[in-house]
Design a protein around this nucleic acid. Structure first.
Ligand SMILES: [Mn+2]
Ligand SMILES: [Mn+2]
Ligand SMILES: [Zn+2]
Ligand SMILES: [Zn+2]
Lengths: 147, 147
DNA sequence: TCATTAATGCGACAAGGTTGCATTAATATA
DNA sequence: TATATTAATGCAACCTTGTCGCATTAATGA
């Protein structure tokens, strides 16, 4: 990866956490910063246990969940429930060239067991008088790196 | 509902269970028939506990799950994991005028708390070299009956 | 420096689902 | 019909994921 990219990512990460602390009036704690750091560096949808494994700071399970739910409330992270019934969390990337909103497909690779946000918007025509407020769409298969 | 419809549904249900017993070489048991009867009569995606509540025969939780997974193996039922992380099961309807395959959206109504199969096929264009084998797509909102 | 209270750790808990194992009963065959 | 085979079941134990209450810690503002 080019140096430029790393810088952009790092600036981005700092900005998100900064936004979280100042705009959302959250306290600056090592654990919260570490969780966000993992999510932004991996750029994948990750489960609680996967996140903990990547963290340098130790933290309780309940705390991690509380942090993740806080991130969701503040809309810097979104939650996906995969077909294994587990919750996965991914940063809402806004510093990228293309903004990825919440209405996109997710892809679970059965080989590398990762879940990623696809830049593919979910298109549908719901039947008459159905009001769609959220969606949770996961495609399952083999990703480009595993085939 | 017209008498004709009921007849068609009942014939259909008998045929599915008959198919299950003869073609799939499964034994004819009251519990299996009861589970399938609930699913075909409700025509909704139902969770294990919702199914049990509708059953006249009593059966163990583990047994119900084993039956449902057996139905999935034999492809007379399909499984959806909703955004509450729970598994829901729905008959694969083939006796209807329009066949509903597995590649359709599901809709969870937050008011009546039901999950139904929509006749809306999931359309998407996965990125280059991604192989999609299954999907689990749930739209969440308010259904036509609740608004 | 101190007061406020958000954030954390710990334990307990619940829900959902699976598995092992003994028992029951559906089916095929004699 | 009687018997053997083994699929299906019931029960208990277990695991995983996620949440909650409560005491404690520490970030923040005054
Ligand atoms: Mn996403
Ligand atoms: Mn369906
Ligand atoms: Zn992969
Ligand atoms: Zn409804």
């Amino acid at each position: 990866m080019r140096q430029g990219c790393i810088n952009i990512l790092q600036v981005c990460r700092i900005n998100i956490f900064d936004y979280f602390c100042t705009m959302m009036k959250r306290r600056n704690t090592a654990t919260q910063e570490a969780v966000l750091a993992v999510l932004t560096s991996k750029r994948r949808a990750m489960s609680q246990d996967a996140i903990v494994k990547q963290m340098d700071v130790r933290a309780d399970r309940a705390t991690i969940y509380r942090i993740l739910n806080r991130f969701c409330e503040d809309e810097i992270v979104h939650k996906i429930v995969a077909d294994d019934g587990k919750q996965y969390f991914a940063v809402c990337i806004k510093c990228d060239e293309k903004t990825i909103s919440n209405n996109h497909f997710h892809f679970r690779c059965t080989k590398c067991e990762t879940i990623e946000c696809l830049p593919t918007i979910v298109e549908f025509s719901a039947p008459q008088n159905y009001k769609v407020q959220q969606m949770n769409c996961v495609l399952v298969g083999v990703c480009k790196d595993c085939d």
